[in-house]
Design a protein around this nucleic acid. Structure first.
Lengths: 228, 228
DNA sequence: GGCCTTGAATTGTGGAACAATAATGACTAA
DNA sequence: TTAGTCATTATTGTTCCACAATTCAAGGCC
């Protein structure tokens, strides 16, 4: 509803892309829980844009893996199945471990980014802003992958983590679930910055192992409730 | 109306997606060389679809990195600059080396795929079907990455290699350029299948190093001719 | 209850139109 | 002549409307 105010000299952004951004936020913040049907006429009306333009936005989100399209059945916010979780963690293992392995070659700016984002997560824990904690932690892992120095990989990984956030969206008690991971993020951060590559790899591998199992629990629990 | 038992239930494919596939082929085969303006009215007329549908197809290709959009200036087939080449090879190094490293865990089907595609490339060389050689070689490297067993990474990497094909599209003498790489593909394939991980990694790293420089030469040469 | 039919709702696509911007070319001025 | 200005045209981004194809929900029939 709010017409986005653009700073004058910026490159103009197509309306569809703006709506895509807004929807992406709504989905990853849990405003549109997995399984939600996205009726294009309704959404178009809500955002005050034409149906075609909205459908463009939905297409973009489909490419990013946040919604799934089926012919003549429209768009649905994706619900993660266990295989999806395995897939997400296959990607995480590949990219995060590769990033830690090559961390010696990373620029100092990227390394500082690590520290910043871990600290942000710790602040979120201190503030007891639980819904922020999960996002901050994911941002840290995004920063890890950014050590590789590849923009396309960064974008790709961003989509993967956005999908992972779909699992957070159906989590019953984020306050219990999220905080324990932050000290482990801190540990990985310090090991990487300290140049202790072997230990960093081991810590990251174990982290991903444990995290995958934990997320699987959440997804399986959600599958149970959904099947009733 | 009842479906006969055993008949495959084909999900219908949206028209936009079909056109996107056709355009992707045209671009990667060189039918639409880099820099070509893609006028949507003309293309829509040619494919016999509405402008909206065609624009959806273009959006998809934009997401894959094959075309670039600029507001109110439409779509253009992307022309690789040297930074783009660096970026492509950053991704290749990350994923292909990670794949070779983890090749011990790969399934036997994936390993057979390696052999198949190298052989296809060798056949193409024997047939002197030079335009096929480059594509076959890229397919081999795609198979390498498939050792990781991740569908999303496969799709991502496919897009990257499609971008690389844009460099082939402006290459003056593919017959000279492509064949020398095939024996090196063969070497990597045999090392991986033989379980000689260290040697395989070294060979792959050297391959990517040399390949990047060679592609950079092509792109730089093209930049010169384009600037006149 | 189970099955079929029917009508409404929704999607996928087409077509025309319009404002905003870019490209083009003519015209003027130095 | 050459540079700059301005109007004309093309093209894009977006909207509205329309319609066939298909799914969904409800009701009627056995």
């Amino acid at each position: 509803m709010t017409k986005l105010s653009g700073v004058v000299n910026e490159e103009p952004v197509p309306a569809g892309a703006q709506v895509a951004d807004a929807l992406r936020v709504r989905i990853t913040e849990g405003g549109l829980p997995p399984g939600t049907q996205l009726r294009d006429t309704a959404l178009a009306a809500e955002f005050g844009i034409a149906r075609h333009t909205l459908r463009n936005a939905l297409r973009q989100l489909e490419y990013e893996g946040l919604i799934s399209y089926r012919m003549h059945k429209g768009a649905v916010v994706k619900t993660l199945c266990t295989e999806d979780v395995h897939e997400i963690y296959r990607v995480r293992r590949t990219l995060e471990l590769a990033a830690v392995q090559q961390s010696a070659l990373a620029g100092s700016a990227a390394l500082r980014g690590l520290e910043e984002r871990v600290r942000a997560a710790e602040v979120a824990v201190a503030c007891e802003s639980w819904n922020t904690v999960g996002t901050a932690s994911l941002w840290f892992h995004q920063a890890l992958v950014e050590l590789l120095g590849s923009r396309s990989i960064d974008r790709f990984f961003q989509g993967i983590l956005a999908q992972l956030r779909l699992a957070f969206a159906v989590m019953p008690d984020e306050a219990q679930w999220q905080p324990p991971w932050i000290p482990r993020d801190r540990e990985i951060c310090d090991l990487v910055r300290g140049g202790q590559r072997g230990a960093a790899i081991a810590a990251t591998r174990q982290y991903l192992e444990d995290s995958e199992l934990a997320v699987l629990d959440v997804v399986r629990a959600d599958e149970m409730t959904g099947r009733t």
